[in-house]
Simulated assay, not measured.
Amino acid sequence: MNSAPARQQQEQALDDVSSTLLIPLAARAFGDAMFPAQAVHDAYAAAALQRLKIGVSHFLDDPASVYGVLSRTRVFCELAHGFFDRYPRALGVNLGCGLAWYFQWLDRRSNRWLDADVPRVMALRKRLLPAGGKRLGHADVDLRRPGWWRQLDLPRRRDGSPVLLICEGLLMYLEAEEVQCLLHEFGEHAPAGSELLCDTLCWLAAGRAAMHPSVRHTHAQFRWGLRRMAELTEPHPRLVLLSEHAVMDAYDFSSSLSYPTFRALYGVPLYGIIRLGVSG
């Protein structure tokens, strides 16, 4: 059988921003051995990489990014478990899921999960990852376009069951207007008590992806960075900043000084995880 069409499809799926999914995939596949204290025990990443047959050693040569992926995975999971403790039958959604499978860590046997990304990534995901069970769904979506909440058929009653959204490694690749639109849509439609977990870079990173040891290999560009914390809640009056979480502060001695110092001086994290909620 000629495998050329399949290889061409994979190449098309992994251009520019879509190809950044290889960074967390490589980190979760091999990072546990590099940072045992941050191990996440991903049951699917290594097999997916093996099926892809794409070299990722250049990503593993960037230990800070490997650590960052593992650290943010653990923070996301901790925050998500807290949400599902409060709402055990709720829906969780991974927006821009790439090849991450968070439901392996967050399946509570009563909750539901939806993985969503652009069609070419979801097609790749279908070939590389198991389908999952009845409580795990998949959907095509372009988060740069308004209307994604309705397209995903997410709950729209403000007094309905809260929804958890994870938005990992995505916002920094969107234009500022697209970020504001995404946050507005969350604030406008999400039921009260819903939460959005996302990671953010500061404004200094915008336009400088070529300086990042891993992202530069993908040819993607950082389009947006946080300049004021208020940018996260200004898009809609229902948005509330619930908490902020460090990712890199414990990486090494230099990080333990530079990341908190930057936050104190400039009022935003150099890189961190944000937990947003919506009011009634």
Rank of each mutant, 00 (worst) to 15 (best):
residue 1 M to W: 08
residue 3 S to I: 14
residue 4 A to S: 06
residue 5 P to S: 02
residue 6 A to F: 12
residue 6 A to L: 12
residue 7 R to Y: 12
residue 7 R to P: 06
residue 9 Q to L: 10
residue 14 L to C: 03
residue 15 D to Q: 02
residue 22 L to D: 00
residue 29 A to R: 13
residue 30 F to S: 04
residue 30 F to D: 01
residue 30 F to I: 01
residue 34 M to P: 06
residue 40 V to F: 05
residue 45 A to I: 07
residue 45 A to T: 00
residue 47 A to K: 04
residue 48 A to W: 06
residue 53 K to D: 01
residue 54 I to E: 01
residue 56 V to Q: 00
residue 59 F to W: 04
residue 61 D to Q: 05
residue 61 D to I: 15
residue 61 D to L: 09
residue 64 A to E: 12
residue 65 S to R: 10
residue 67 Y to M: 05
residue 68 G to Y: 02
residue 71 S to Y: 07
residue 76 F to I: 01
residue 80 A to G: 05
residue 84 F to E: 02
residue 88 P to H: 11
residue 89 R to A: 07
residue 90 A to Y: 06
residue 91 L to R: 13
residue 103 F to D: 11
residue 103 F to M: 15
residue 104 Q to D: 03
residue 104 Q to F: 02
residue 108 R to P: 13
residue 110 S to W: 11
residue 111 N to A: 03
residue 113 W to K: 04
residue 116 A to C: 03
residue 117 D to C: 01
residue 120 R to Y: 14
residue 122 M to K: 10
residue 124 L to P: 15
residue 124 L to V: 11
residue 126 K to Q: 12
residue 128 L to K: 12
residue 129 L to E: 04
residue 137 G to R: 10
residue 137 G to W: 14
residue 138 H to N: 00
residue 143 L to T: 02
residue 145 R to F: 10
residue 147 G to V: 08
residue 149 W to A: 05
residue 154 L to H: 01
residue 156 R to M: 11
residue 157 R to F: 07
residue 158 R to L: 04
residue 159 D to P: 15
residue 160 G to P: 09
residue 168 E to H: 01
residue 174 L to I: 09
residue 179 V to P: 12
residue 188 E to L: 13
residue 197 L to P: 12
residue 201 L to G: 00
residue 202 C to N: 12
residue 204 L to W: 15
residue 209 A to K: 10
residue 212 H to G: 03
residue 213 P to Q: 07
residue 216 R to W: 13
residue 217 H to M: 14
residue 229 M to Y: 07
residue 230 A to E: 15
residue 232 L to D: 01
residue 235 P to Y: 06
residue 240 V to R: 13
residue 241 L to T: 11
residue 241 L to V: 07
residue 243 S to P: 12
residue 246 A to W: 11
residue 247 V to M: 02
residue 247 V to Y: 11
residue 250 A to Y: 11
residue 254 S to N: 13
residue 256 S to Y: 14
residue 257 L to W: 04
residue 259 Y to W: 00
residue 273 I to M: 05
residue 278 V to L: 08
residue 278 V to I: 11
residue 279 S to P: 09
residue 279 S to E: 13
residue 280 G to A: 00
residue 280 G to W: 08
